[in-house]
Simulated assay, not measured.
Amino acid sequence: MAKKKSMKASFVLYHEDYEATREFTLEQKGQLWNAVFEYAIRGKIPELDPQSTVAFRYIKGKLDRDLVKYQETCARNSENARKRAAKVADDWPDEETIPKATKTTNNGR
């Protein structure tokens, strides 16, 4: 993906992501995690060595799946909020149904 993925402030890493990269060198781990952040934040797919590319693709699949799930949840929450707002508007009394106030006098006081 070449465009910014979302305004989501976080992403999930799983224990199995560590297991998949445990034998990497520190340099490979650093490049991989930088790549994961770049992808999650900006949608940029980096150039990596072959071993890191395999791990990145594995993690990328989960990031994409989690983002779709997040977007579906946001859409569902937005629709539910619209439904609640419409129900409140429907339940709100019309002007015709609100009794007119009666004029009161001060009785000279």
Results as ranks from 00 to 15, higher is better:
Y70F: 13
V68I: 10
A20H: 09
R57N: 15
I59F: 02
Q31G: 08
K69F: 08
G61F: 01
P50K: 11
E38Y: 10
D17A: 01
R22L: 11
R22S: 11
K69T: 12
A35P: 01
E16P: 01
D49Q: 05
I59N: 01
K3E: 13
Y18H: 07
K29D: 08
F56S: 00
D17G: 03
E47L: 10
Y14E: 12
P50G: 06
G30C: 08
M7R: 15
F56P: 02
A40W: 07
I45H: 02
R65L: 06
K62W: 00
D17Q: 01
Q51F: 09
Y70I: 02
T53H: 10
E16G: 03
K5N: 14
F11W: 14
R42D: 13
F24D: 02
N34C: 08
R22P: 00
A35W: 03
K69H: 09
G43L: 06
K60W: 02
K4C: 07
A9M: 14
N34T: 12
M7Q: 13
F24G: 06
Q51Y: 10
L67S: 04
K3F: 10
Q51A: 15
K3Y: 09
D64W: 01
F56I: 02
A40N: 11
F37W: 12
A55M: 07
I59Y: 02
V54H: 10
K29Q: 14
E19T: 12
T25A: 02
A55W: 07
T53I: 07
D66A: 03
G30P: 01
T25I: 04
L32W: 05
I45D: 09
E19S: 10
